[in-house]
Design a protein around this nucleic acid. Sequence first.
RNA 1: GGUCGGUUCGUCUAACGGUUAGGACACAAGAUUUUCAUUCUUGUAAUAGGAGUUCGAUUCUCCUACCGACUACCA
Length: 530
Amino acid sequence: MERPTRVRFAPSPTGPLHMGGVRTALYNYLYAKKKGGKFILRIEDTDSQRFVPGAQEYIIEALAWCGISPDEGLDENGNVATQKSDKNPFAPYKQSERKHLYREYAEQLVESGHGYYAFDTPEELDARRKEAEANKETFIYNHTTRNGLRNSLTLSQEETARLLAETTNWTIRFKIPQDRTIKMHDLIRGDMEVDSNTLDDKVIWKRADELPTYHLANIVDDHLMEISDVIRGAEWLPSLPLHYLLYEALGWKESMPSFAHLSLLLKPDGKGKLSKRDGDKMGFPVFPLQWINPDTQEITRGYREDGYYPEAFVNLLALLGWNPGTDQEIFNLEELTAAFSLERVIKAGARFNPEKAKWFNEQYLRMRSPEQLAEEFRPQVEANISNSSYSDTFLAEVCALIKERAHFSHEFWGIAKALFVAPEEYDNADVAKFCKPEMKEIIEEMRDLIAENDIKTFGQGEDKEQCCNAIEELLIGRIREREWKTGAVMNILRLYFTGNTRGLGISDIIYFIGKEETLSRIERGLKSTF
RNA sequence: GGUCGGUUCGUCUAACGGUUAGGACACAAGAUUUUCAUUCUUGUAAUAGGAGUUCGAUUCUCCUACCGACUACCA
């Protein structure tokens, strides 16, 4: 029986969305699109203690930047939907606004014997755990211990009723069945089984804030929202047996979604999973967007602000733990959708490699047209030159020349600066190396050669290649004729043009700066270095 | 400690039980170039260890080691 594919990404608004979270969202999105289904966003804010202002907005913005916007969950204004509509039939999509729903199911579990009221305080439980630890035992809140604890199973009906009415710190726990082997299936990992006696009677509802815990809210909402497949991080694998039992106890076993658990993203070096600190330490972002901590105003860098294209970010994330089985590495979102399958998701954790991330961006940068790049470049030019009036064509031609020298478009100014402004100083080591006294006359002759000839440069009607070829023939022609060393001559010119002897080609520079500026820079160089 | 998951070049990964174990990033060398970068060519480099099943194991089973997650009235 095929049912419509409906998957959800269900983050908790406790801070900015980590790149691992974005990957989970991406895989959900790809899976949904591949199957012609729906990708749903649900905000899981059942932890009133850990709510962080702005986190929810951050999540929405990050998904939008990546181009993986949800089919359901947001209203026309881009906020989490609270009202039912054609687009959002299961609204609200935020658990705090669904809180009235959960208690009913928790009570249902108590009535059917799958749950009970527990009156233990956190301190009491903590003491029990410490005690067990001291005796080198493991404290499990289950059939071996629950009968010795304060709950509706051990207390009289009257006492239970009294505590229920008079106190507010009780919880509802799920009663894990005894001596069961729970057989589970994961779309990525295959079959697994767990002995129910190793499981804890988890809290599923808290009287203190009248909110469910993750486990209950998650199962109830996935059921109510008719979720067909749950694709989530591997950190949830240990709770899968509990979730199986919850579906069973609620009578929803038949419509239980299938599960897929994604492996974690690991640190580039060392041990453990990728964390915010690694990014700070090693100089790469861990978050899609910049995040400003509302309490401390501390700024955490993001891929967007670091100059990554969203396409590149999505591409590199997709290949971290999944591959198409071919040598293709560059995919746009449509191609990813077509190629994606959970069967090819890797079981092992993927170590993130910042170097490869840069390579991906470089690939996308090269795919962009000179005109697109010019748009990105113009603000840099304007920031460095007041009243600049360079044409789109000029900037586009510059971008075409320099695009292969950059990983990011924000590097453009640094690479192309010499095409806009004369160097302010000359590299001392280069001067010492190339500006030998005998070169002075040679450079003067080159200057005169340029001055005496009709040199076509940008905007003079001919295309760049023709102009540059002509310039090169003129200069190299003379150098050959006089049997000078090409490098010795050209590097001095480059030094005068750019300030050092590394970088752009001489004829390209002359083409862009024009004859007048060329002569002026040579003149100034001659005066300063001999 | 307990439960669960994982393990192929430094990294991401490919390989119906039969391959000289392939590709990419990074690195190195060479070629090209007026320099740098690009580009091209080449190279270094891996099946965690041990048993077993099999004619044959990276692939299947078990054990060991290591790594990770979880072990909250957090998600």
